[in-house]
Write a protein that binds this DNA or RNA. Structure first.
Lengths: 213, 213
DNA sequence: GACACTAATGACACTCAGTGCCGTTGGGAA
DNA sequence: TTCCCAACGGCACTGAGTGTCATTAGTGTC
């Protein structure tokens, strides 16, 4: 859930060079969004501030809602690879915990932007809604892994529900991170997954017991 | 997750009478969306077909994305009441199952529309995204109940995660319902909740055992 | 039946997101 | 230098959503 690296990978030396990067535009947008609010910032404001044409901005990002996200695809690929390369002798929940924590690791220079990013994504209704589409591909990665691991079809109830649960855990950890501001994100995520791993099989039992006793 | 009753409750007999209802507009919209596709249907198309002005349509629904939903608020209130009035001697997961099944009960005359509605909400990206905002209030109701029941703060990890899990279960059941088309929705929901209730405490253990053994 | 009150309606104008089109720009290769 | 090609940016257009305001149509009163 971070912005990812610059786009400068290895251009096949042909045609005019790009005049900017996803990261640069995203940073400008994040700053303006935090200053004026998401709805009060127009695409023209951002384009002007970034020193590019409005039309160009829409070539980098398909919509205003995508601006805070930066470049999401590569991160997802990395997580998929990491999960599929995970040794089988690790318990599933632990695999998921490790992969999720790793997925959320952000280069230090991105930290201030990452906080703004998540602040916006979780609290601006429009962005909250749009995020669903990103989360859907993320959940897919989790569901795939769980399905493979438990030898079930991906569409089965267990992998699907597990993916939703993982997403919920992550978002709860993010909320906490934004709230108290002191604890490092990765610690919170790690802790949350351990807690769920430990309690997920007892919380329902507790409820039963509480009801029966 | 249905459209709910007509708006004709008990108008305080003053001023001009409304010329239509949420349900009526929603039905017109659902029909057009299914015929031409969501993106290919404009607000003007719907207003014209419903025989009202474009401006009037926006007084009934705040956005195009809200058209399939109808009137959601009252349903949510009903579920909240039902959960809070639930006897304590019923296990929590069973309480949730009953409330969720009841929440999804739809009057028979709504059935054909309900199918279109869910088809759209789950498969049109824009609507899928927008639904998040509705789901958020739904999750809140679940989280509130779980928190009260387990005597935890609502913001705690367990209630939050439980709410996400319930949402995931519901959506998985809905997907299945749309897919095979034969089984009644309420049966699928009931079945899914029972399955999760039964397996949620073993699935992780299975994974552990599978890994260790 | 005329009048007053009030709420719903619809027409108009406006902002802004997003798209298609097309001529321009500038870096690398021949 | 010239050619090639991708990135750029301007322009015009569609469609969602909003603010404003005059009009319409019920209800109660005289």
């Amino acid at each position: 859930m971070t912005l990812g690296s610059e786009d400068a990978v290895a251009r096949p030396r042909l045609g005019r060079a790009p005049s900017t990067t996803h990261a640069e535009i995203s940073h400008v947008a994040l700053t303006l969004f935090m200053e004026r609010g998401f709805d009060q910032t127009t695409i023209d404001d951002i384009a002007r501030e970034a020193g590019i044409g409005r039309r160009t901005l829409f070539r980098y990002f398909p919509s205003k809602n995508d601006l805070p996200w930066g470049d999401f695809g590569p991160l997802l690929d990395r997580m998929r690879e990491q999960l599929s390369g995970m040794p089988d002798d690790i318990p599933m929940m632990e695999q998921l915990r490790i992969a999720v924590v790793e997925f959320n690791r952000v280069p230090e220079e991105e930290w201030p932007y990452h906080r703004r990013r998540m602040e916006l994504l979780l609290h601006v209704p429009t962005l909250l809604a749009h995020s669903t589409l990103r989360y859907a591909s993320w959940r897919r990665v989790v569901a795939e892994h769980v399905a493979r691991r438990l030898e079930l079809p991906e569409q089965d109830l267990i992998p699907q529900t597990m993916a939703w649960t993982c997403l919920g855990v992550c978002l709860a950890a993010y909320e906490k991170w934004l709230d108290d501001g002191a604890a490092p994100l990765l610690d919170l995520l790690d802790e949350a997954f351990r807690l769920i791993d430990e309690r997920i099989d007892t919380k329902v039992v507790q409820a039963h017991r509480g009801a029966r006793g």
